[in-house]
Design a protein around this nucleic acid. Structure first.
Length: 647
RNA sequence: GCCGACAUAGCUCAGUGGUAGAGCAGCUGUUUCGUAAACAGCAGGUCCUCGGUUCAAAUCCGAGUGUCGGCUCCA
C-alpha cells in the first residue's frame, strides 16, 4: 500500500494490522459482514437464477452470526438519531432502526428528502441528547392501548409492525404479545430493546450516509430515507473503523482498475468492462491456469453461439422464468437473445451423436460471453455487470460416477484457490420443498455428494432445502483480505433440468437409453467478478505468477538502457512479463513508479551489473537482493511463476 | 427499476452568474543520477448531453445519460 498511510492505525481494536508476506500493509479486517447484500451476485449460479430469489448464502452465514455486545448501544444510538430527526423534521414517520454490524440505521419517512448536508445538523442534536444523559425507560403496554398510542402519534409504520406481531401470535394460537416502548428524554419508540441505561452511555459515533430504502424491502411499498451511522465504545475504535473504511476505499477495484490500467467502463456500454492490455494479460493468465487444470482432467473446450433463437430459451424454460434479464435482438422478423448462460447450448453438442456409457464423463468447458440485463441501479464495477465470462463447464456423468466426479471437482477448487491463498468454505444445499423429479433420485444424489464432501475432508455446512429446484449443490465461499465473504464457485448436480428438458441420454451396457446427470461447475465464477475480488484482496499487488507486469528493468542511467533491453529479451524468452523503464528519470523515480504499479520485481542495472551481465532485484516489499546473473535470474523467475504461489 | 448525491484536463480535485484553474501524468530541453518524486518550459477543456432562464451560465431551472451510496442485519 502507499506509504502515506499511517504505519499503524489507532489502537483499540483486537484486529491488528499485519505485515503481509508481500510486505504491504494489509487493511484491517472489516467487521465481518454476516449476511450477504441483496445485491451480491453469484454469476456462477447458472440455472439457479430460475429458482426463487432467496439465496443460499443466508443460512450458511447465519450459522456464523453472533450477538455483538455493542448491539444495545448501537440500537440506542439509532433511537437518539430518530429523536434528532423528529426534532428537526416534525411529522416524520419512523420505520425501523436496528443495530447492524459496526453501527446502526434508521428508516424515516420525511417530508423532504434528506441530504448529506442534513447529517451534520442531526449529529449535533444527537450530541446534545447524549450530553443530557437521558435514561432509557422501558414501559409495557396492553396491545390495544399501545396501538392507540402509536396511531395517535401518527406512526403508521409502527402500527403496522404491531399489527403484524399480533397476527403472527394469533396464527400460532398464542396470546397477544406484550408490547414495549422505550423512552429517553422526549422520544418514545415502539421497541423490544434492550438498550443501554442512558444516552450518556453511547460512545463516539459518526453518521455515514443517507440512502433510499423500501419499507420492508418491498418495491411495492413506500421508499423511506435511511441514515446509516457507526458507533463504538471508544474514540480509538471509531477512528480505526473509519480508517478501515478509507483503506477499503483505496483498494476498491474500480479505483485500482484505473490506477493500474487494467480496465475501464464507459457509458456506451454500461455494465461491461473494457479490458486494457494489462487487464487482459491478467485475465489470460487466470484463464490459462484454469485451462491447464481442465486439460489435465480431460475437459474438452467448446464454444457456442452468443446470439440464439428464442425457441431454445423456450425449451430451456428461460423464456418463462428469466426473460426480463435477457437482451432480445430482432432480426428478419425472428426473435433472438444474447445468451445469459451456456448450459442449454452445450446439450446440442452432447446430442450431436449417440453417447455410450463408455463416453462418460464428458466434460465440456466453455468460456462463453454471457449477457444478463441487470437493472441499471444494480450495476457496480466488476462485481455486478451485464457482460461476463465464466470458467464454466458442464460435465455429463452416469449416476454411478457422480461421487467420484464431485470429489475431483472439490480437488480442483482447492488446487485453484491455493494459487491465491484463498481458503474455500463449503455449503451443501439439499432438496427444497418444491423440487423437480423423483425424491429417491434426489436422496441418492445427495448421499453421493455428502460422501464426496466427507471424503475430501473439508468442513462444510449443510443448508437443508436450499438446493435449486433441479439440483442439490455445493456453494463455495471465500473471505477476502478485508473480511468480506464472497461466493465464487458452485457445483450443481443437475438431475433433471438439462437431462429432462433436452432429453439427453446415453446407451448403457445393455443397449438401453439412460439419463445422464449434468454437473454445472464454475470455480472462479465470473472472471470479471473474480478479478474484481482479487484486485481488492491483494490491493492490486497480485501474486507474482499472475501479475500483469512481473518485473520492470530499471537502468540507472541512459548508458544502461541497451543492456536493459537485452535483459528484458532474456526474460521474455522465458515467458516473464517484463518491461524496461528507459525514461530519463532518476532511478528513485523509476522505483517509485514501479512501486505504485505494485510490480513484484524491480531489476536494477548499473555499471557493476552491466559489467557482470547481472541485475540487482528489488522486491515491491522493499527488499534489496544480491545481484544475480541474467540466466540465473530467468531460471529463478520462471520457476517462481510456475509454482503459482500466492505471493 | 426506485430514493438521494455526483459528473470540470488522461488521473485527483478547486472554481456560487462576468477572461476555465492546481497538483500529478504527458511532451520538449537540461540533468545521467545506486533503491519510493531532479530542474525548467510547453501543451492539454463539447466544464456529461440536449433544452430553458438571463445582457451574460461550468455556476440557476428542466429532461436525458452515466457513476456512486443504498433498497428488511427486521418493533
Amino acid at each position: 500500500m502507499s506509504p502515506t498511510i499511517p504505519p499503524s492505525p489507532p489502537d483499540g481494536d483486537q484486529r491488528e494490522p499485519r505485515l503481509s508476506s508481500r510486505g504491504g500493509w494489509e487493511a484491517f479486517l472489516l467487521p465481518p459482514r454476516l449476511t450477504p447484500r441483496m445485491n451480491d451476485q453469484a454469476h456462477d449460479d447458472d440455472l439457479d437464477l430460475l429458482a426463487p430469489a432467496k439465496g443460499s448464502a443466508d443460512e450458511l452465514l447465519d450459522a456464523n452470526a453472533h450477538d455483538d455486545p455493542l448491539d444495545p448501544m448501537r440500537h440506542s444510538a439509532a433511537h437518539v438519531m430518530a429523536e434528532a430527526v423528529l426534532e428537526l423534521f416534525p411529522g416524520t414517520k419512523l420505520g425501523i432502526g436496528p443495530a447492524i454490524d459496526g453501527g446502526f440505521y434508521y428508516d424515516f419517512e420525511v417530508a423532504r428528502p434528506l441530504t448529506p448536508e442534513d447529517l451534520a445538523a442531526i449529529e449535533e442534536r444527537m450530541r446534545a441528547s447524549i450530553a443530557a444523559d437521558h435514561p432509557f425507560v422501558r414501559k409495557e403496554w396492553d396491545p390495544d392501548e399501545g396501538r392507540t398510542f402509536l396511531a395517535a402519534k401518527g406512526q403508521s409504520y409502527k402500527v403496522e409492525i404491531l399489527d403484524d406481531l399480533r397476527t403472527a401470535a394469533g396464527l400460532k394460537g398464542e396470546k397477544p404479545p406484550v408490547v414495549t416502548t422505550y423512552q429517553h428524554g422526549p422520544f418514545i419508540d415502539l421497541c423490544r430493546g434492550p438498550h443501554v441505561p442512558s444516552t450518556g452511555r453511547i460512545g463516539p459515533f459518526r453518521l455515514l450516509s443517507v440512502a433510499g430504502a423500501y419499507w420492508r424491502g418491498r418495491e411495492d411499498r413506500p421508499m423511506l430515507q435511511r441514515i446509516y451511522g457507526t458507533v463504538w465504545s471508544t474514540q480509538e475504535e471509531l477512528d480505526t473503523y473509519l480508517w478501515r473504511r478509507e483503506e477499503a476505499r483505496k483498494r476498491d477495484h474500480r479505483r485500482l482498475g484505473v490506477a493500474l490500467d487494467l480496465f475501464s467502463f464507459h457509458d456506451v456500454s454500461p455494465g461491461s468492462a473494457f479490458w486494457h492490455p494489462k487487464g487482459q494479460r491478467l485475465w489470460r493468465t487466470l484463464e490459462g491456469a484454469m485451462r491447464e487444470v481442465q486439460e489435465a482432467r480431460g475437459y474438452q473446450e467448446i464454444s457456442t453461439p452468443i446470439l440464439v433463437h428464442r425457441k431454445l430459451w423456450e425449451q430451456s424454460g428461460h423464456w418463462d422464468h428469466y426473460a426480463e434479464n435477457m437482451f432480445r435482438v430482432e432480426a428478419e422478423g425472428q426473435t433472438f437473445s444474447l445468451k445469459p448462460m451456456n448450459c442449454p447450448e452445450s446439450t446440442y453438442i452432447y446430442r450431436s451423436r449417440v453417447r455410450s456409457y463408455r463416453d462418460l464423463p464428458l466434460r465440456f468447458s466453455e468460456y462463453g460471453r454471457l449477457h444478463r440485463n441487470e437493472r441499471s441501479g444494480a450495476l457496480s464495477g466488476l462485481t455486478r455487470v451485464r457482460h461476463f465470462v465464466q470458467d464454466d463447464a458442464h460435465i455429463y456423468v452416469r449416476p454411478d460416477q457422480l461421487g467420484d466426479e464431485i470429489r475431483a471437482l472439490l480437488g480442483e477448487v482447492s488446487t485453484t484457490y491455493a494459487w491465491f491463498g484463498l481458503s474455500p468454505r463449503f455449503a451443501f444445499a439439499t432438496r427444497p420443498e418444491k423440487a423437480l423429479g423423483d425424491p429417491a433420485v434426489w436422496e441418492r444424489a445427495e448421499g453421493l455428494i455428502l460422501a464426496a464432501l466427507r471424503d475430501a475432508g473439508v468442513d462444510f455446512v449443510i443448508n437443508p432445502g436450499d438446493g435449486t429446484f433441479y439440483a442439490p449443490k455445493i456453494d463455495i465461499y471465500i473471505d477476502d483480505a478485508l473480511g468480506r465473504q464472497w461466493q465464487l464457485a458452485t457445483i450443481q448436480a443437475d438431475l433433471m433440468m438439462l437431462p429432462e428438458r433436452f432429453d439427453l441420454h446415453y446407451v448403457d451396457e445393455e443397449g438401453r437409453p439412460q439419463r445422464p446427470i449434468a454437473i454445472h461447475r464454475a470455480i472462479y465464477g465470473s472472471l470479471e467478478r473474480f478479478i474484481g475480488i482479487l484486485v481488492e484482496h491483494f490491493g492490486g499487488a497480485f501474486p507474482f505468477w499472475c501479475a500483469p507486469v512481473q518485473a520492470v528493468v530499471v537502468p540507472i542511467a541512459d548508458r544502461h538502457n541497451e543492456a536493459g533491453a537485452e535483459l528484458a529479451e532474456v526474460l521474455r524468452a522465458r515467458g516473464i512479463r517484463v518491461e524496461v523503464d528507459d525514461s530519463s528519470n532518476r532511478m528513485n523515480y523509476k522505483i517509485r513508479a514501479a512501486q505504485e504499479q505494485k510490480i513484484p520485481y524491480m531489476l536494477v542495472l548499473g555499471d557493476r551489473e552491466v559489467a557482470a551481465r547481472a541485475a540487482a532485484p528489488r522486491t515491491r516489499s522493499g527488499e534489496q537482493q544480491e545481484p544475480l546473473g541474467w540466466e540465473a535470474l530467468a531460471d529463478r523467475l520462471a520457476a517462481e511463476a510456475a509454482a503459482r504461489r500466492p505471493d
